[in-house]
């Protein structure tokens, strides 16, 4: 359609431009009309952001400072910072184990996914059928968390694949998701498994942008593969690494769908994370105030961790 339309309009343009010269005084009106038209084009999006972004943020802030049963908007009872002090008080489970779990979950996921993706991406770069490999590694990303969680939950069971492999190697079975010591690492592995594909994608693109002449020069100078990796690949890959780090950390700090599916936060609070705790406070206990306060505390943690990473990468020589 565009190929037939575009040339025709450009061809006709010089002819009608003569007519436009006389309409200079109409330009102010045209500009005003364009403003109206622009806001009409923007209206659906702006209306949506007003109702589903700004209003909810204000509402959540109000709730975090109130106690409310959730029925009549007139019954919202302001309590100041009580919800926050309740969360952060001694003996509250929110700091330990919940926030600690959240940080461990995110840290573990980032470490595993980063190590795996750097390794696989640098290797894929040397192989044939790169598209095929990337597609395979990408499959978990387009799969619903309900499938990922249930398949792994089943694989972790005594009669499941993981224990089957352990038994075949002569090792004893492990009750991965039932043992409080192994439950968190077990879900971390699944989260990393599910997110390594996108990290590989970003890193492969980063590797492709490194000029081949650098490697040739290094080879001429007789540098070994280890030196090349440390002195050329890693430094030039920094922007991609920063991106992977920041986005995976963000995802790790806030995701809880996988945990709901696999363990529901259990056993005990062994895999309970902040976003899940917020969800429970709201939808299991109807404590909207505490839930909203928890959401803002987690938001502050997310911001702090992100800024810390940007600061770290900038300090060590990379403009983000």
């Amino acid at each position: 359609m565009v190929n037939t339309l575009a040339p025709e309009t450009t061809r006709r343009a010089p002819h009608s431009r003569r007519a436009a010269v006389g309409a200079v005084d109409g330009r102010g009106r045209a500009r005003r009309r364009q403003t109206v038209v622009a806001y009409l084009f923007l209206a659906p999006a702006l209306l949506f952001f007003a109702v589903f972004l700004i209003l909810p943020l204000g509402f959540a802030l109000l709730l975090s400072l109130s106690r409310w049963t959730g029925f009549d908007l007139g019954d919202i009872d302001p309590v100041g910072l009580d919800n926050f002090t309740g969360l952060l008080a001694d003996g509250s489970t929110f700091l330990t184990p919940v926030l600690t779990n959240t940080l461990l979950f995110a840290l573990g996921t980032v470490a595993l996914a980063l190590a795996g993706s750097v390794l696989v991406a640098t290797c894929i770069d040397k192989l044939r059928f790169q598209g095929l490999w990337r597609t395979l590694y990408f499959l978990p990303i387009v799969t619903t968390v309900v499938a990922v969680g249930n398949v792994w939950k089943y694989m972790y069971e005594p009669g499941g694949l993981v224990n089957g492999v352990l038994n075949a190697l002569g090792l004893g079975s492990v009750a991965f998701l039932q043992d409080p010591d192994t439950a968190l690492p077990a879900v971390v592995v699944v989260q990393a498994w599910a997110s390594v594909g996108s990290a590989i994608l970003v890193l492969t693109a980063g590797l492709k942008s490194i000029p081949g002449s650098y490697y040739e020069a290094a080879a001429l100078d007789g540098a070994g593969p280890g030196t090349v990796f440390r002195r050329i690949t890693l430094p030039l890959l920094r922007p991609s690494l920063l991106f992977v780090c920041v986005t995976q950390f963000l995802t790790g700090l806030q995701s809880f769908a996988l945990i709901i599916v696999m363990t529901k936060g259990g056993p005990g609070d062994a895999t309970n994370v902040a976003a899940l705790e917020m969800y429970r406070q709201a939808f299991s206990h109807g404590d909207w105030g505490t839930a909203s306060a928890a959401a803002f505390v987690l938001f502050a943690v997310v911001l702090a961790v992100t800024l810390a990473q940007l600061w770290f990468f900038r300090r060590t020589g990379e403009d983000a």
Binding site: R31, Q34, T35, V37, A38, Y39, F41, L42, A45, L46, F49, F52, L53, L55, P56, L57, F59, A60, L63, L250, Q254, F256, A275, M278, Y279, A282, W288, A291, S292, A295, F296, L298, F299, V302
Partner: peptide, 28 residues
């Protein structure tokens, strides 16, 4: 399109990507 407030609206659109989804479950 050229119109007053364009940069502001654009920045608003960019900032919407900054807020994590978990902030919105309860209020939504």
């Amino acid at each position: 399109l050229r119109f007053p407030g364009r940069d502001f609206v654009f920045r608003l659109v960019l900032s919407t990507m900054m807020f994590p989804p978990f902030l919105f479950f309860v209020p939504h």
